[in-house]
Simulated scan of single mutants.
Amino acid sequence: MRDTTVTEPDVTDSDDAPTHKPSRVPWAVAAAALVALGLIPWFVAAPGDKDTSAVPSTASADAGFARDMAVHHQQAVEMSFIIRDRTSDEDVRRLAYDIAQTQANQRGMLLGWLDLWGLPKTSSGYMAWMKGDGHMGHEPKDGSLMPGMATNTELDQLGKAQGKDAEILYLQLLTGHHMGGVAMARACAEQCEVPQERQLAQGMVDAQQSEMKLMADMLKERGSAPR
């Protein structure tokens, strides 16, 4: 089974991206930055404050979404780096770079929230936080931990494909990946309690739906379609 441990992605490429290495900043500086940007309210910025009523519980939708979407995003970043090495098409490479940058940044934000809340970053049950049966019917296997995620076999296929074949497979896998991500983000937009997290989730819904339309057009140009 593919190692699902999440690591900090290096969203760089010596050919077409500026060199940037993630830095380790003190917790207080990171917290202050998130608060200043309005990405986390001041009253939940510091775990252990006297007023902890606004800090989500480990079983909450807020924490569950942050944990699960961090894993979901990590695979999109991985696939985007794979395709940038398998094609010379500038449109596909540009899309892959944009997705890698955006989702790596969002993933860092989600993990940062979990740090600030003093909650674990690993999940004992993917998507268990979602109300209703939206998470049912998916059996984690072959590296596909949540709906939309590619399997290890599909990732291996992408890593071996070249040119147009690689472009089509990437666009198809990312379309399915986005569909699963949109369902998760929509659930958080409805269920999460922290306003900033709901806002981020809704932004994911809007952006990924737009990207799915773009990818459908790109697939059509290549004589293919979403799966």
Rank of each mutant, 00 (worst) to 15 (best):
G159H: 11
D98Y: 05
L34N: 09
D156T: 15
P120T: 06
A185H: 00
H72I: 06
D10V: 14
L174G: 00
R227T: 05
E211I: 02
D89L: 05
D89K: 02
Q103P: 05
A45M: 11
Q202Y: 12
P195W: 02
Q162N: 12
T52G: 09
Q75V: 13
H177F: 02
A33N: 15
G108R: 02
D16T: 06
E8K: 10
L155W: 04
N105G: 10
T122N: 15
Q101F: 10
H138L: 05
G143M: 03
D51Y: 14
V6N: 13
A187C: 02
A46L: 14
A36Q: 11
L145Q: 14
E211C: 03
M204Y: 00
P18Y: 14
V71E: 09
E221M: 15
G118H: 09
L37H: 08
D85S: 15
M179Y: 07
E221C: 05
P9H: 03
Q209M: 12
E197P: 03
M184W: 01
T5S: 14
A33G: 13
L116E: 04
H138G: 06
L174R: 00
A104M: 07
V29I: 07
A46I: 09
D142Q: 07
V182M: 03
W42V: 08
Q162L: 08
G48I: 10
M215L: 05
Q209T: 13
D98H: 04
Y170N: 11
G159F: 08
A185V: 03
A70P: 15
G132W: 01
T122D: 13
D142G: 10
